[in-house]
């Protein structure tokens, strides 16, 4: 409720100074492109069977930035996020059209193998999903299957640095052999983040990483995201507008499969350019 309060304040000052784009306008407005992008998406359409879930999305994701994707439920933001590392491949009826490039390489082209792709683009899911194995094995699994570590000492080192980066080392260093599923929700989610960064990816996708967590665990993870930005590019889907405004530099607003507006987080929350964006951030729906 505090959320809509701040959002309303921000929007109120914005509406006075600027004319909003009409609700019926479905072309993306704002700054879709950045200099030196890490990922570029061009005219991406996603279909579930005959139903089109994502409609002509064009968006750049810059290096070392946190881009937040917001929008009401069912707007396609999670679907779009999962396209970025081809997690939709295993849904039989799902079909992706258009172009998504990572460092210039089209990830949907025939030559690209999903295994190395997912090593480059890691993912953290909505519900913490550690493997039912020990904390150590949870972290070590990724580096092991990709052959990043050869010896026990190398593995130990990766486990330690990953847990340190995820801010979990101090809490679990004495019980690495205990099951990861025995940790608290927030710790589990940080374990999942540590598991993702153990593979040393370039981009980390986060699908509502804090939706199952309490405010304290959420704030720990948000601080973590801020630190991780120095090394990684992060795309995060969130339902919480405060979270988007706290952690991200750019924000993309999705509505019913359309990318409505992209801009710096500051601009989206203070001076939205589109009537739908304004409706959403002021709490009129969503």
């Amino acid at each position: 409720m505090e959320a809509s309060q701040t959002a309303v304040n921000g929007a109120a000052s914005a509406t006075a100074s600027q004319l909003l784009v009409d609700r019926s306008h479905r072309e993306t407005i704002g700054q879709q492109f950045v200099e030196n992008p890490r990922m570029t998406c061009r005219n991406v359409d996603v279909y579930y069977g005959d139903k089109r879930a994502i409609n002509n999305v064009t968006l750049d994701i810059g290096s070392n930035e946190v881009i937040a994707m917001i929008g009401p439920s069912g707007c396609g933001k999670s679907t779009f996020l999962r396209c970025l590392n081809r997690m939709n491949d295993y849904i039989d009826i799902c079909r992706v059209e258009g172009e998504i490039r990572l460092d210039g390489q089209n990830i949907y082209s025939g030559e690209v193998d999903v295994v190395p792709l997912r090593a480059m683009i890691g993912m953290v899911f909505q519900k913490p999903n550690p493997f039912p194995k020990s904390i150590y094995d949870n972290i070590a699994y990724g580096p092991k299957i990709h052959g990043l570590v050869a010896t026990k000492s190398e593995t130990d080192e990766v486990v330690e640095t990953s847990l340190k980066k995820a801010g979990l080392w101090e809490e679990v260093k004495d019980r690495l052999d205990q099951p990861g599923t025995g940790l608290s929700g927030g710790q589990q989610q940080r374990l999942c983040i540590a598991r993702t960064i153990a593979v040393n990816p370039e981009v980390i996708l986060m699908d509502e990483p804090c939706s199952a967590l309490d405010p304290i665990a959420t704030s720990v993870i948000e601080d973590l995201i801020d630190e991780l930005r120095e090394q990684y590019t992060i795309a995060i889907v969130t339902h919480s507008m405060q979270q988007a405004s706290r952690v991200s530099q750019r924000t993309a607003y999705f509505h019913l499969g359309d990318l409505i507006e992209v801009g710096t987080t500051d601009q989206i929350f203070t001076r939205p350019g589109h009537q739908l964006t304004e409706d959403y951030i002021t709490g009129r729906f969503g």
Binding site: N85, M87, Y90, V114, V115, P116, L117, R118, A119, G122, M123, V124, F125, N129, P130, F131, Y141, G142, I145, H146, C192, R195, T196, A198, V199
Partner: peptide
């Protein structure tokens, strides 16, 4: 998803 997400085949 967890396994696929970190690049397991």
């Amino acid at each position: 998803e967890a396994a696929l997400g970190i690049g397991a085949s």
